[in-house]
Design a protein around this nucleic acid. Structure first.
Length: 281
DNA sequence: AACAAAGGCAACCGCAATAAT
DNA sequence: CATTATTGCGGTTGCCTTTGT
């Protein structure tokens, strides 16, 4: 047998967090930590409340509980939602907005090296969350780099479920996303290889055959990564005219790559580390 | 001023990996 | 070992705001 059910889905609140909920979660986590279990955290907050009503609460919780009781609020949230809110918004060391040029370049470099592995990218930008970086990339950085060529999601309505490959554009055109990704094209496809001037497998001076970091490792990937990469949609991302890529000076670092199984440190030092992390499995 | 389209972002959903029972 | 909960991640959605007509 497994564990007990995590939460009553019918009784949890969804949607935007209120300031009261934020304050409650922040206060609790700052005073008690997460206890290593987000799912039970909302219940624990309820337990603390109960102690308060029994007059046995600790002084450290008094301020929090006074606040809570005065507003007659509880935390009817799923633990998963609490975790997300804390990690993406309430954590004290988080930065929001105001991405610097250096951060822009780092994100772009990492993206072209390892793809949409936002958690790894975020790990190289202190104070930034994967969600923030993902949003920033999707809404601003992509356009900043490639111009306003791409069809917006409002103009590009997927047919059926989000996982399907067919898209229809408002001009009536029909496109296919990444369904023909071959066994060795996990990471990307021809367009991005063209972007980097690294076309497929090649031999280096040591006589050992290497592949571009932008092409899949020859060893089988874990299934999840295979599927993620297959749906990575990079062809769509990089469908813009390559002539528009002028001015992307930081991409030039790839020219210095001697061993195509490496990522040039000229691109950005952090890219090498991130790339190596991905290479490890 | 009113409306529509586009932009921006927080939050949700679903899946895979991992851990607990 | 099998089953199920929990965690972590990436993709997507929905809503509010801003901009354009």
């Amino acid at each position: 047998m497994g564990r007990a059910p995590c939460c009553d889905k019918a009784n949890v609140k969804k949607g935007p967090w209120s300031p009261d909920e934020d304050a409650l979660l922040r206060s609790y986590v700052e005073q008690h930590g997460t206890g290593g279990n987000w799912i039970t955290l909302p219940r624990k907050i309820g337990t603390v409340l109960s102690r308060y009503f029994c007059g046995s609460t600790s002084n450290s919780s008094l301020l929090l509980l006074t606040f809570v009781v005065s507003r007659k609020v509880g935390l009817k949230r799923c633990g998963k939602s609490c975790r997300l809110r804390w990690l993406n918004y309430l954590r004290p060391d988080i930065k929001h907005g105001g991405f610097s040029e250096e951060e822009d370049n780092l994100i772009c470099s990492l993206y072209t090296s390892i793809g949409s592995r936002w958690s790894i990218i975020a790990a190289h930008l202190p104070g930034r969350t994967d969600n923030d970086i993902k949003n920033y990339w999707n809404t601003k950085l992509k356009k900043k780099l490639f111009g306003k060529q791409r069809t917006d999601r409002r103009q590009c309505r997927r047919i059926g479920s989000a996982k399907q490959e067919s898209v229809r554009f408002d001009d009536g055109g029909l496109g296919i996303i990444s369904d023909d990704v071959g066994q060795n094209d996990y990471w990307t496809s021809a367009s991005i290889r063209e972007l980097h001037g690294e076309v497929g497998e090649r031999s280096s001076s040591d006589g050992v055959s290497h592949q571009s970091p932008l092409v899949a490792p020859s060893s089988p990937l874990p299934q999840r990564l295979r599927e993620d990469s297959a749906s990575m949609d990079l062809d769509e991302l990089f469908q813009f005219d390559l002539v528009k890529l002028e001015g992307l000076d930081f991409f030039n670092g790839f020219e210095g790559v001697k061993n195509s199984n490496e990522v040039s440190p000229l691109v950005c030092p952090s890219v090498v580390q991130a790339h190596n992390e991905v290479q490890q499995w």
